[in-house]
């Protein structure tokens, strides 16, 4: 599924590390055969996934660890984020209605929608205490 050559970092669950996470992705994705628009989309998808883990899996508690691993395999760039917080039930997810959210002054709920739009495949899984989101984009 994945090539042996992958890169990973462990980052604390705080939005203050968002810039560092984006830089990490940028560094590696820039070496792949990916155009500028696709690089921006991959970075945004990782930002959204990382932010969702902080907010929903770890309920904004800053002292947990999120592992981010990325690489390429058979024509795809893949990124996996792992956490040990609350599990996300993708089956119950419903795409947001923007107009309704604006009327109700709601925010949030847009991250998963964006990830699905930006990436070619998104898989969620849980094994023991570890939850993972694996995103792929064809390159």
């Amino acid at each position: 599924m994945k090539d042996s050559k992958s890169h990973s970092i462990n980052v604390s669950s705080s939005t203050q590390h968002l810039q560092e996470v984006r830089s990490f992705v940028q560094t590696y994705v820039s070496h792949c055969d990916v155009n500028k628009d696709e690089i921006a989309e991959i970075i945004l998808a990782v930002d959204e996934a990382y932010t969702n883990i902080i907010k929903h899996a770890y309920k904004n508690e800053p002292n947990h660890t999120i592992e981010i691993e990325l690489g390429t395999s058979s024509g795809s760039f893949w990124i996996q984020l792992s956490d040990t917080g609350h599990h996300f039930n993708a089956d119950k997810y419903q795409p947001p209605n923007l107009l309704k959210r604006i009327k109700n002054k709601e925010r949030g709920g847009m991250g998963v929608y964006l990830i699905n739009k930006l990436m070619d495949s998104v898989e969620y899984s849980s094994t023991g205490k570890t939850n993972t989101i694996l995103m792929r984009k064809r390159i």
């Binding site: 968002l18 984006r22 945004l44 930002d47 959204e48 932010t51 923007l98 959210r101 604006i102 009327k103 002054k105 709601e106 925010r107 949030g108 847009m110 991250g111 964006l114």
Partner: peptide
Amino acid sequence: QYIASAGLGVFMAYIED
């Protein structure tokens, strides 16, 4: 230079008011 959904959320939260 960059916007994520958290930024869009701020526009969503205040436009109606």
